[in-house]
Amino acid sequence: MSHPVLEVRDLRKVYPVAVTEDCPDGEFTALHRESFALAPGGSLAVVGESGSGKTTCARLIVGLERATSGAVLVDGVERGRGRMSAARRRRRGREVQIVFQDPYSSLDPRQRVRDCLAEVLTLHFDMGARQRDGRVAELIDQVGLDERQAGALPRALSGGQRQRVAIARALAAEPKVLILDEAVAALDVSIQAQVLNVLADVREATGVAYLFITHDLAVVQQVCDDVVVMRSGRIIERGPVADVLERPAHPYTRRLLASVPRPGWTPRRRATEGRPPAPSGHPLPPVSETKEALP
């Protein structure tokens, strides 16, 4: 494998939480010293049930959250943390970009699509107005939107269209890595397919690498080369998508695979619950109830 474009080294994140009987030390480890790497132009899936630490990982990589320990490297260079100069902040922006799950709150409701993209271009690149307009048009075309939508406010756009705008905005910075955190989960089936195709086209055209976060294994296989499977803040299995989906080694991966509805599928109860509720005081849904059944 060539030199990885993104590398996560022993990344760990501990959240302070209210002290309860489940959490006597008042600490909750959302990510346990995990490492993985993403090849240039590659596409790595991070899968796992809700609460397994996928979003935490993404927020640490883009710098929205500060890691308890460990490092994030882009092109072999550790990413800056904490306060930094405007120039360094911008350079970081050109390394990794992110698209969030909820298309309805990912865009400034008062900003037209074109202005949103132009603002990002102005921040990162020194270009004239003509050149900038040309680039905006190019980005809009790249994600499959048209001129009319470019002049629209977000509220005039559907969920799928908004998500494309969010992708275009992220691509405007010409990042080396694009993180997609459940970016197609909120979309309708027919729209989801459109956006997945757009993502495939974009990767082919720009060579950007994807870190694709999802709990949907069917989608993984459509867009990713490699996969890491997460559970309770730990990576429990990793490998090329084809291998992992065909010969899952870990029982949890098998379980994840078995629960995807498909023709001829019948749902089965695998366990009764038993796990205590997650520490209160944090806003996210805790780990699902099925865990205790697994080794």
Binding site: S158, G160, Q161, D188, V189, S190, I191, Q192, A193, Q194, L196, N197, A200, L217, A218, V219, Q221, Q222, L245, L257, V260, R262
Partner: peptide, 20 residues
């Protein structure tokens, strides 16, 4: 056709044009 299916990777998904 639009729904990706495990074990059936296509270069492109078939989509339904436009929006609901």
């Amino acid at each position: 056709a639009a729904r990706p299916e495990i074990g059936r990777r296509e270069s492109r998904l078939r989509t339904i044009e436009g929006r609901p």
